[in-house]
Design a protein around this nucleic acid. Structure first.
Length: 918
RNA sequence: GGGCUCGUAGAUCAGGGGUAGAUCGUUACCUUCGCAAGGUAAAGGCCGCGGGUUCGAAUCCCGCCGAGUCCA
């Protein structure tokens, strides 16, 4: 735990606060009220603000946000713009879940200075953890704005720490008209994301309005403090991390029965209208029920089981039947959920998340489908895109019109797709249900899990469809946890960080990008890697592969096969067979000469610059929702993955290619340079970070025409240097991510030639010029299909003719007529046709052919079957002779073997088998 | 990043080593003054693509392409 004095603030003492122990939960808290006995946090205290607001007057979202931000601005904080709700700068989370998430990991760790200090921001956050409670509890939201002020203190400079933080909070609350005696500060150790520290929860009227975290520890196995089972030690930097719930402030100011009524009453009203909500319940009664619901729900965690208890308590509290309560409250819950979810989608899609089956996109789809289900239950007929558009218009996007258009298209497509999935699902369930229905069994749980897991059919919908077919299902209450338990979790392997205790290698490839040779001093040789004081070798990074080349000492040359960077130190890997000699030959302190394979480097540079151009062109052709989702370059080709919600058409692709080549022909210079991070972000925004966020106070910014990216790669000096750009193909790597494969420079010419070769080879085969290939190919294909049908018909005719001749040559054994014959040049299909015709005349057929080895087909007519003959057994006896095997049904069977010369003998063996069986 | 499922006729899907099927739709004919319905018949298949195993692959195995879905 923290030291005893962690919460002993001068502020509390000076203001006459008392430190107390809650008589319900035992937690410590601070209050001005000498008579207070409980900490203020539910369930120790109930909601008291519902119906009796804690602030002076009602304040809406926009006004409250502005009030907060200007309050802190007036007190020395710099207001900064909100970050996107999709955390593109993080690789550990998909969504921005707190204001502090904006500054992790580099700013909190001290690697990068904050954009301002101290600062204030109102950061929209999305948390989907309590999705099930949204709409039901009266207080849960998927999306909320975390208003915050943050301070980043260093050992050199402390801006302010605990006292001023709490003082500011207190001033804010009292300024809004909160009763000083009603405000309590509850002590609560905080830990998360590898950091920890003391925190206070700020409670008013039973509602937690803010949390003030004093982050001053980090995870450390040998640390002195233990919090929630992990050991922590003090950090040099210490950070004020506050979080004020904008929506809760608004709710507290209004005292409405639910938070939803407080923050977007007009959206709730619109959705109610669309749902044609029955207004037979008086507003008074509804308010009473909701207030009771919210008050009680505030006291408990919402699990499915406890929801039922909750309902029972409410119905007895206000004296109506549980059924009646359900009838009134369920549609309201759905309306609230839709109001919340559509706002969540407005932020998600507005900030550029493309729905997908993976990653952040999956979360968007999850919310979309949930919302669609709720809308259907409510009987809302308008498209989801209408509701989301209404929500987006409330946000402040500068390019609203283009966004609205794209988002409407995305949502309409999602809605249509979900309908298709469900329709397909219903058919599938019906088929499965019929299968179990026949056996008069229930549909087992395993089947229900597979329906959900593999086909996305929610169990409720599956159940409905099954009941329609008159089949019961096995559906336990804990269905979803059963699904979860079928997924085995695999532990992620942490990448080993190589730390080398040497100064950073001087990287000369930025100033002298096209210089081949350099002289450097050897600092160290480790595991076949050489470390130099400076280098022209580019280490792998940003999708650009490592350079190769030579390192020379005197007359001896060693091949560099890989170059990696570890903590700023560049490692040059020497070829396997040469590293022993190298270690012997070259020692720390030696002077060596390096030589970079420049044709490889140039190919990489061309592909890298071309990737930026393709990205820019794609954005122009497809829309501003395009983000890079990954990239990889090689000498031969490169690929760029971009976020896009549908397949790129041929036409669009051609347009992208054309635009890219125009940019090349314009031969504009490419500017690269190091910029202060904060300055770069201010000028270019988060669109800089297409390839991820690099660490460091200054970042390298590469500008190619209108495309500006933070990028550490080596680039051409002007676009003309790239040479031609040839787009090769697109691929859908995931739902919502399209891959464009292309080649640039020499590689583009070579790839073009390869395609020409294919074209010429194909036209040579058909003896037509390339421009006639499509027409000719389709003609050939049509003709081939016709001929195939013709051949089948002819084989039928031929078989019939054969049959007539053969039946005349039948032998008779024990009352069964048997045809044994070789049909020259017949394939298996012909043999089968003839044999089945012969057996149709109630003969036994044993036919063979020596086309491509021995082929034997046997067939048995009705009479033969009655006597116990089996075509399968006969063919097995015969094919054994030709060194093969065969089988089939009793009526007809086929087989063969490699030893065609023994065909006649084999047929005899077949006949012998018949004789033996009779 | 991991898991699961599916690509067979225009559509929806059976079949899961041994002659490619059903239903709907299409076309023609019968019936009718005409239409619908009904009856009869026909047309319509590189069984996603490429390898492998096998006497034989739509079917089994591997790879690829395309689609769907659940989870982190």
């Amino acid at each position: 735990m923290f030291p005893e004095d962690a919460y002993n603030l001068d502020f509390f003492r000076e203001e006459g606060f008392h430190r107390k122990t809650c008589e319900r939960c035992g937690g410590r808290f601070w209050t001005r009220d000498p008579t207070r006995k409980t900490c203020g946090d539910p369930p120790c205290d109930p909601y008291t603000f519902i119906g009796s607001p804690v602030f002076r007057r009602e304040i809406g979202l926009d006004e409250m946000r502005e009030h907060y931000l200007s309050f802190f601005e007036e007190r020395g904080h710099t207001r900064i713009k909100r970050y996107p709700v999709i955390a593109r700068w993080r690789d550990d989370i998909y969504l921005t879940i707190a204001s502090i998430a904006d500054f992790q990991p580099f700013i909190t760790s001290g690697l990068v200075p904050p954009p301002a200090n101290p600062l204030t921001v109102s950061q929209p956050c999305i948390r989907l953890d309590d999705l099930d409670s949204v709409g039901r509890s009266g207080r849960h939201l998927t999306t909320f704005e975390m208003m915050a002020h943050h301070v980043f203190n260093t050992p050199e400079e402390e801006i302010y720490w605990k006292d001023r933080t709490v003082a500011l909070c207190d001033e804010l609350l009292l300024g809004l008209g909160a009763d000083p005696l009603a405000v309590t500060y509850k002590e609560s150790p905080w830990a998360g994301g590898g950091n920890a520290g003391p925190s206070v929860e700020v409670m008013v009227g039973g509602l937690e309005l803010a949390t003030l975290v004093f982050m001053d520890m980090k995870v450390s196995p040998q640390g002195d403090y233990e919090i929630k089972g992990e050991r922590y030690s003090k950090m040099a930097n210490y950070i004020v991390d506050t979080g004020y719930g904008l929506e809760r402030f608004v709710w507290a100011s209004k005292g409405s029965p639910t938070i939803y009524d407080a923050i977007f009453p007009e959206v709730v009203a619109t959705i109610s209208d669309l749902a044609g909500l029955d207004s037979s319940v008086s507003d008074d009664e509804r308010t009473r029920i909701l207030a009771a619901n919210a008050r009680l729900a505030g006291m408990v965690d919402l699990e499915d089981a406890s929801l039922r208890d909750l309902r029972r308590r409410i119905s007895s509290d206000i004296g109506i039947s549980a059924e009646k309560l359900d009838e009134i409250i369920t549609p309201l819950e759905r309306i609230y959920a839709v109001a919340d979810h559509t706002r969540c989608l407005a932020y998600m899609l507005g900030d550029g998340i493309i729905p997908s089956n993976v990653k952040a996109g999956y979360l968007a789809r999850l919310v979309i489908r949930r919302t669609l289900r709720q809308m259907k239950d409510l009987g809302i007929g308008v498209p989801l895109s209408d509701l989301v558009s209404m929500q987006i218009s409330r946000l402040d996007y500068s390019d609203l019109d283009e966004r609205l258009e794209t988002i409407a298209e995305i949502l309409d497509q999602e809605e249509e797709r979900y309908a298709e999935t469900l329709e397909k699902g219903r058919r599938l369930v019906k088929r499965i249900a019929e299968g179990y229905g026949k056996k008069s069994e229930k549909i087992p749980l395993s089947e229900m899990i597979s329906l959900y897991d593999s086909h996305g059919i929610p169990p409720e919908i599956a159940k409905d469809a099954a009941l329609e077919a008159g089949v019961e299902v096995d559906l336990p209450d804990n269905f979803y946890s059963r699904v979860a338990s079928t997924h085995i979790r695999s532990e992620k392997e942490g990448r080993e960080e190589v730390t080398i205790d040497l100064p950073e290698t001087r990287r000369m490839f930025y100033e002298r990008p096209f210089e081949r040779r350099f002289v450097a001093q050897v600092l160290e040789v480790v595991d076949g890697n050489v470390i130099l004081d400076q280098t022209l070798f580019y280490p792998e990074g940003g999708g650009q592969p490592a350079d190769r080349g030579l390192i020379r000492k005197g007359a001896k040359a060693f091949r560099v096969v890989d170059v990696q960077s570890a903590g700023g130190v560049v490692l040059h890997k020497i070829a396997e067979g040469e590293s022993a000699a190298f270690a012997f030959e070259i020692r720390p302190g030696d002077s060596v000469e390096g030589e970079v394979d420049m044709s490889r480097r140039l190919a990489h540079a061309r592909h890298h610059t071309a990737a930026h151009i393709i990205h820019d062109s794609a954005k122009k052709v497809l829309g501003s929702h395009i983000w890079q989702a990954g990239a990889q370059k090689s000498e031969e080709r490169a690929r760029l993955d971009i976020s896009h919600y549908k397949r790129i058409s041929r036409e669009e692709l051609k347009e992208i290619e054309l635009l890219a080549n125009r940019m090349v022909m314009e031969n504009v210079p490419i500017s690269t340079g190091w910029l202060d991070r904060a300055e770069a972000e201010k000028r270019f925004g988060f669109e800089l970070y297409q390839g991820g966020v690099p660490p460091g106070t200054s970042i390298r910014v590469v500008q190619v025409g209108s495309d500006v990216e933070a990028c550490a790669g080596t680039h051409c000096t002007n676009t003309g240097m790239i040479g031609p750009i040839k787009v090769l193909r697109t691929e859908r790597v995931q739902d919502g991510v399209e891959r464009i494969e292309f080649a640039a420079g020499v590689a583009a010419v070579l790839r073009g030639q390869e395609r020409d070769d294919l074209l010429f080879e194909a036209s040579d085969i058909l003896s037509v010029p390339p421009e006639q290939l499509p027409k000719t190919a389709s003609r050939f294909f049509e003709e081939w299909k016709d001929l195939r049908k013709e051949a089948a018909r002819l084989k039928e005719d031929l078989a019939r003719a054969q049959m007539e001749g053969l039946t005349r040559r039948a032998v008779e054994v024990g009352g069964i007529k048997i045809v044994v014959a070789v049909i020259e040049n017949a394939d298996v299909e012909e043999l089968i046709k003839a044999a089945s015709m012969i057996s149709g005349k109630d003969y036994v057929a044993i036919l063979g052919s020596d086309k491509d080895g021995a082929k034997i087909v046997t067939a048995v007519g009705k009479k033969g079957l009655a006597k116990g003959l089996s075509a399968g057994e006969i063919v097995r006896a015969a094919t054994l002779v030709v060194g093969g095997g065969g089988g089939g049904k009793p009526e007809i069977a086929q087989g063969g073997g490699p030893r065609a010369e023994k065909l006649t003998e084999a047929l005899k063996a077949g006949l012998a088998k018949v004789k033996a069986s009779l």
